[in-house]
Design a protein around this nucleic acid. Sequence first.
DNA 1: TGAATCACTATGGAATGTCAAGTAGTATAG
DNA 2: CTATACTACTTGACATTCCATAGTGATTCA
Lengths: 120, 120
Amino acid sequence: MDNDFCPVHEAIQFLQEKWVLHIVRSLLEGPRGFNELSRSVGGCNPATLTQRLDRLVEIGIVDKEVQSVMPPRTQYRLTAAGQSLQRVIEEIDTWATSYLRPSADRGAVCEKHYLSSETP
Amino acid sequence: MDNDFCPVHEAIQFLQEKWVLHIVRSLLEGPRGFNELSRSVGGCNPATLTQRLDRLVEIGIVDKEVQSVMPPRTQYRLTAAGQSLQRVIEEIDTWATSYLRPSADRGAVCEKHYLSSETP
DNA sequence: TGAATCACTATGGAATGTCAAGTAGTATAG
DNA sequence: CTATACTACTTGACATTCCATAGTGATTCA
């Protein structure tokens, strides 16, 4: 069953790790420092963030540049591979704005999408 | 900070739940039964799969149709909203086949993408 | 002088996911 | 006729992951 390499499966495997998509989305707006990124992502604790960033660097999606150790200053930026994940985020964006509507508890899907005045 | 509703954030929140993208990807190929889906997804245990499916049904991405209780036979299929996630999966596919190469331990990004005979 | 910021690390507990086994009933194989 | 495999799950114990909070040394700002 899994004797052949499936890149999509691999990609999904780490794209679904918690905060990864959020991190990429944030970095698409430009390079960030650690705390800056943390704030922008919103709700990820530093231990997890460190782990995710290490992994993203290891995979080759993010570039980590230590500008100075003391005082600490670091920049995280997307590599070319990371940048091209923009397409994925954009599609999620398109999907979300089409099908997701505000709901009190959870995200709920809006049914009326295809009922607009357009012929697919 | 989060006083306004961000659909993308919401979407990422559940798309990054473990196995969700795998499940959607599998169901894009057609409706599946429970065990069939489990096998196709590969590695997800029934407890988690049940939970994910319940949630996807609740959100409105998946439709669950119980054809018979005994002998048990159930069909899971994507709703229109679920179907349109195909775009997202396709972009992941495109990205993965461009940037991911087989590696022994983890997914590693292939650097040579932009070194082809094209001028960006 | 004292607080705030930087990039993290440490710790213990809470949430989440997994493993193995088991459920009722049918269908297939021997 | 019996044994096995299949269906769609559930249960309970366990493992992994994640989170909240506090704290590090040095610099900047008031």
